[in-house]
Simulated scan of single mutants.
Amino acid sequence: MRKLNFSINQIKAYLEDRNINTTIELMEKEIDLIEKEIMPLVLLKKDLEKKVKVLKDFQKIDDYEKIKIEKIAARKIIFIEESMSKEEEVDLAFRKLEARNDSKLFLFANKDMGVFIEEESMKKGDYTVYENAFFFVDDNEEKYNTILPEGYFATLVYKGGYEKSQPLFEKMMEFIKKEGYTINGSPMEIYRLDIHGTAEKEEFITEIQIPVRK
């Protein structure tokens, strides 16, 4: 009864005058408490099931490093504003994000992590300096920083270490220019499978997304 936030006087009154109605009321309150405790686990289970499906789908990809133009729906994100370049710095930024909202963000759940490419460095042709590490969050999430608008993106998925990002970004920029597109926002690197999910560098899966328009 203390766990159900009953006061000492309420507990005393119940113990001195127990009957079927008061017992039913107590049990109903306990059911409500159990439901509240179960719900986070149910949501986490659903997130994990989604992540398993996503990873299995990525395992089936047979056209890694192929550039595609895709229309992607609007997405909510939580981010931290911080410039970074080394892998350790990116990981630290994600840890800071987790600490900010531990009940919502799970590294092993369906919370894909990513970084935006710093604009000034990008103008110089350097795609290895990042800013604003972020997590995607569910559409029904009420706590978020901003919404990435729906639009068209040049996308590319690759396996292996992050040293592949720079030449692949250059390849995508050439494709965008050749096909008559222009960049329409901040390019992103999204870490679909990284050090948190595998110790094998060759198994890392990274997706590059660059918003574009004709």
Results as ranks from 00 to 15, higher is better:
Lys104Asp: 09
Ile80Cys: 00
Pro167Phe: 00
Ile80Pro: 01
Ile117Arg: 07
Asn184Thr: 06
Glu189Pro: 01
Gly114Leu: 05
Tyr162Trp: 07
Ala99Pro: 00
Gly160Thr: 03
Thr155Ile: 06
Val137Glu: 14
Lys68Arg: 10
Ile147Phe: 03
Asn101Ala: 14
Asp112Cys: 10
Asp62Gly: 15
Leu148Asn: 03
Asn132Gln: 15
Ala73Gly: 03
Lys164Gly: 02
Asp63Phe: 10
Asn140Val: 04
Ile147His: 04
Lys171Glu: 13
Lys104Cys: 07
Ile147Lys: 13
Lys177Asn: 12
Ile78Glu: 01
Phe134Thr: 01
Lys159Arg: 15
Ile117Ser: 12
Arg100Phe: 08
Ile176His: 06
Lys143Thr: 14
Ala154Asn: 01
Tyr64Ser: 09
Ala109Thr: 00
Lys123Arg: 12
Ile147Arg: 10
Tyr162Pro: 00
Met188Val: 04
Tyr64Thr: 12
Glu65Cys: 08
Gly114Ile: 00
Arg95Thr: 12
Asn184Arg: 09
Lys104Asn: 10
Asp139Ile: 07
Thr182Gly: 09
Asp62Ile: 11
Ser103Thr: 06
Gly151Ala: 12
Tyr64Pro: 08
Arg100Trp: 07
Tyr144Asn: 03
Gly125Glu: 03
Lys164Pro: 02
Gly125Asn: 06
Asn145Ser: 15
Tyr158Ile: 04
Met172Tyr: 06
Lys76Trp: 00
Thr155Leu: 03
Phe79Pro: 01
Gly161Ala: 15
Ile80Gly: 02
Phe136Ala: 13
Glu142His: 03
Lys178His: 12
Glu89Arg: 06
Ala109Glu: 07
Lys66Pro: 06
Glu70Asp: 10
Asn145Asp: 15
Glu189Thr: 01
Asn145Phe: 05
Ala74Leu: 04
Ile80Asp: 11
Ile117Trp: 06
Met172Thr: 09
Asn140Asp: 15
Ala154Leu: 01
Gly160Gln: 08
Phe116Gly: 07
Phe136Gly: 13
Glu150Ser: 14
Ile69Gln: 09
Tyr162Asp: 05
Ala133Tyr: 00
Ile78Val: 11
Lys76Thr: 01
Asp102Lys: 13
Thr128Glu: 14
Glu174Pro: 01
Glu163Met: 09
Ala93Phe: 05
Lys86Tyr: 08
Asn140Thr: 07
Leu107Ser: 07
Ala73Pro: 02
Asp62Trp: 00
Glu70Arg: 10
Ala109Phe: 02
Gly160Ser: 08
Glu141Trp: 05
Glu150Cys: 05
Asn140Met: 03
Ile67Lys: 08
Lys164Gln: 15
